[in-house]
Design a protein around this nucleic acid. Structure first.
Lengths: 106, 106
DNA sequence: ATCGAAGTTTGACGACGGTCGTACTTCTGT
DNA sequence: ACAGAAGTACGACCGTCGTCAAACTTCGAT
């Protein structure tokens, strides 16, 4: 199977594409889990309630938007959050989306 | 016609809803134009390439997400960006989305 | 009182995106 | 060599969303 899938360069990151990737709750959850873990995670280790084929689809969307980098380790596909590159392209965006909601004072 | 449409309170702002509002290019353009103007603008003064009925729909989505506040002045409906409240609920989000894309060094 | 300007409402249409099941591929371990 | 684990690819289905036109409402100006 595809050894290494195509990854966009930082200069090719597109805000519209990134937002379309992040607007889906499942995908945003993947990003959040990656961010919280602070480490690369295999596709199968995520806590998401969708089938494997759907999961594959979501990871592909995230990868093509530049949010994650994927590489194989055995039969497992590892996923790494491209934090630094996203911060370079869209400063503050990931921070704003991964930060837990601050309760508003009454 | 509806005197004053319903506006959500800051405590009711929902990230999912805000993202769904901002993912549409036309709506994000409206927010960007409001931010750049630094003033309230009537619906008709925006530079958007859609019909009036579609525009009405977009303004409604933005209002219900809490991104804008709407009020009538004569027959014109004015739109105000709820900057401070959005910043309180989701710090850095609007900044990240209204800031023009920083060119990446080669 | 009438007309036009500015939006709203409703209904319809079409495209896109999330979902799944099934079949397939690749690698690991035995 | 084989079986199983981990994903991927391919269709198909279906709901949602953006879009528009047409009819209507409200307000201001003439």
């Amino acid at each position: 199977m595809g050894r290494t899938p195509p990854h966009p360069d930082v200069s090719q990151f597109d805000l519209q594409q990134v937002l379309e990737a992040l607007v889906d709750p499942v995908r945003r959850s993947i990003v959040t889990q990656l961010d919280a873990a602070g480490a690369d995670l295999a596709c199968g280790t995520f806590d998401i309630a969708v089938s494997k084929s759907t999961a594959t689809h979501h990871f592909k969307v995230l990868r093509e938007a530049g949010l994650i980098r994927q590489y194989y380790v055995g039969t497992s596909r590892m996923n790494a959050l491209r934090r630094a590159e996203m911060d370079e392209a869209f400063p503050g965006l990931l921070d704003a989306l991964t930060r837990p909601r601050v309760p508003v004072a009454p």
